[in-house]
């Protein structure tokens, strides 16, 4: 099963990159992730003048002896990151015009992220959702966690009447996010951008890092229709007669506006947004993502 998700060719490319979090949260183990907080660590960060209320244990008494001033010695805190993956399994994710469905692509992406996090000993969890939370594995770095996550990812299938609803799963995540962490949402985001950002906003507000992977089939971005075709909505079952001219012009414009809307609103809300084309190799998407994050750090 691991072999299925973690294709060696994919993992070979990903292992050479560092997964560097933008925001360091409550980390304890020094490692690759840089904590956003100062704390106990080996690497010095700065001195700060004592103000009443500071913990006296952090006062650098040597400096006080030399200068008779009280300064607090601060270190860069290196810690393990809490990574939570939100995987959308709504019926629309079952679509695929080529050999790979969107859900399959999303599973590979999630598994790759889990594996990378495991290599860095990050506590990882997952939430499988559609219109409700279907499965939830809390973040943990215990032994066997990776296998549990892999089983969970593998078992994720779209339900019979499942439709996407971001409100419930994201509020669920907000409930258990007591620490600042990193949340990765993988979905096709067939929803109004305003609604999406509104649903994920509370996570960002708590100081957690949020990354949106927008998984789309190339046929969804620009449908290629010969003549006319009868389309049936995967989630609602509604049918509509569609002509090629409409798909080539008006639909394309609407889709571009939709993608731009999500991207703009996400960026303005401090959310990372990445569009994943299922026709592109998975490792390329990850590599691009990690390169971007590294560069930002």
């Amino acid at each position: 099963m691991i072999q299925r998700f973690l294709d060696p060719a994919v993992l070979a490319g990903i292992s050479s990159l560092d997964l560097v979090a933008k925001t360091v949260v409550d980390g304890f183990i020094s490692g690759l992730h840089e904590s956003p907080d100062f704390g106990f660590s080996q690497e010095f960060a700065e001195y700060r003048q004592y103000v009443p209320g500071d913990d006296l244990r952090h006062v650098d008494w040597n400096v006080y002896a030399r200068t008779d001033r009280t300064y607090l010695k601060r270190f860069k805190g290196e810690t393990n990151t809490l990574l939570t993956i939100l995987l959308d399994t709504s019926k629309s994710m079952k679509y695929g015009s080529g050999k790979m469905e969107k859900l399959e692509y999303a599973k590979f992406l999630a598994a790759s992220l889990v594996y990378l996090a495991h290599l860095q000993r990050d506590a990882t969890g997952i939430v499988v959702f559609d219109e409700d939370v279907r499965n939830f594995v809390p973040p943990s770095s215990r032994q066997g966690q990776m296998m549990r996550l892999m089983h969970t990812i593998d078992a994720a299938v779209p339900g019979e009447s499942s439709r996407t609803d971001f409100t419930k799963p994201f509020s669920h995540v907000v409930d258990f996010l007591r620490k600042r962490s990193m949340v990765v949402a993988i979905s096709d985001f067939w929803e109004d951008p305003e609604t999406v950002i509104k649903a994920v906003g509370p996570i960002r507000a708590r100081g957690s890092e949020l990354v949106l992977f927008h998984v789309l089939d190339p046929q969804e971005i620009v449908p290629k229709i010969k003549g006319s075709a009868l389309y049936e909505d995967l989630e609602t079952g509604a049918r509509l007669q569609v002509s090629s001219s409409y798909a080539q012009r008006e639909y394309k414009d609407k889709m571009e506006a939709h993608l731009e809307g999500i991207k703009t609103k996400a960026t303005s809300a401090g959310i990372d947004y990445f569009l994943c084309d299922t026709s592109k190799p998975l490792d390329a998407s990850l590599r691009k993502y990690l390169a971007i994050r590294t560069g930002r750090l």
């Binding site: 629309s92 067939w190 449908p223 003549g227 006319s228 009868l230 049936e232 909505d233 989630e235 008006e250």
Partner: peptide
């Protein structure tokens, strides 16, 4: 065309334009 519907993730960006569709058949 009515007998072979094609599945699509969402029709939120499509509009019902029967006449123009038939014209292009």
């Amino acid at each position: 065309s009515k007998e072979d519907p094609q599945l699509f993730p969402s029709l939120m960006f499509f509009e019902h334009r029967e006449t123009s569709s038939v014209m292009h058949r």
